[in-house]
Simulated assay, not measured.
Amino acid sequence: MTDATVRLVDIRETALSVDEVHAAVADPRAGGLALFVGSVRDADHEREVNALAYSAHPTAAERLREVCEQVAAHHDVVAVAAVHRVGDLAIGDLAVVVGVSAVHRGEAFDAARDLIDTLKSTVPIWKHQEFGDGTQEWVGLP
Rank of each mutant, 00 (worst) to 15 (best):
A82F: 01
T118N: 06
G132D: 07
V98T: 14
I11A: 07
R105Q: 12
L8A: 09
T122W: 05
R63E: 13
E69P: 01
L94V: 15
V78P: 01
P28R: 11
H75C: 09
Q136I: 09
A81Q: 09
Q129D: 13
G92A: 12
V9P: 02
A51M: 06
I11C: 04
F109K: 11
A53I: 10
V21A: 00
H75F: 08
H104G: 04
A43C: 08
D19M: 07
D110S: 11
G99V: 08
G38N: 09
A79P: 00
D3A: 15
R65E: 11
P124M: 11
I125Q: 07
D76F: 03
A79H: 02
V18M: 09
A4V: 03
V67S: 04
R85K: 06
A56F: 05
A79F: 01
E130L: 13
V37L: 10
L35F: 02
R12N: 08
T59M: 12
H84V: 03
A15L: 01
R29A: 15
E62Q: 10
G134H: 04
E137D: 15
E107S: 14
H75S: 11
V6W: 02
H22I: 06
V9H: 03
I11D: 01
H74G: 15
V37T: 13
L94W: 01
A81S: 03
L141T: 15
D88M: 00
V40R: 12
P58T: 09
R85P: 02
E130W: 09
G38Y: 00
A73I: 07
A112H: 00
R63T: 14
F131G: 06
H75N: 14
A51T: 10
H104T: 04
T59V: 14
D3N: 14
K127G: 07
A26F: 03
V49I: 13
Q70Y: 00
D10P: 02
V77Y: 02
V98K: 02
G31T: 05
V96N: 05
V83A: 08
P124G: 05
G134Q: 07
L52G: 06
V77C: 01
H22S: 15
V83K: 04
L8M: 08
V77L: 08
R113F: 09
V86P: 00
G106N: 13
S101M: 10
A108G: 04
N50M: 12
H128R: 13
A61G: 09
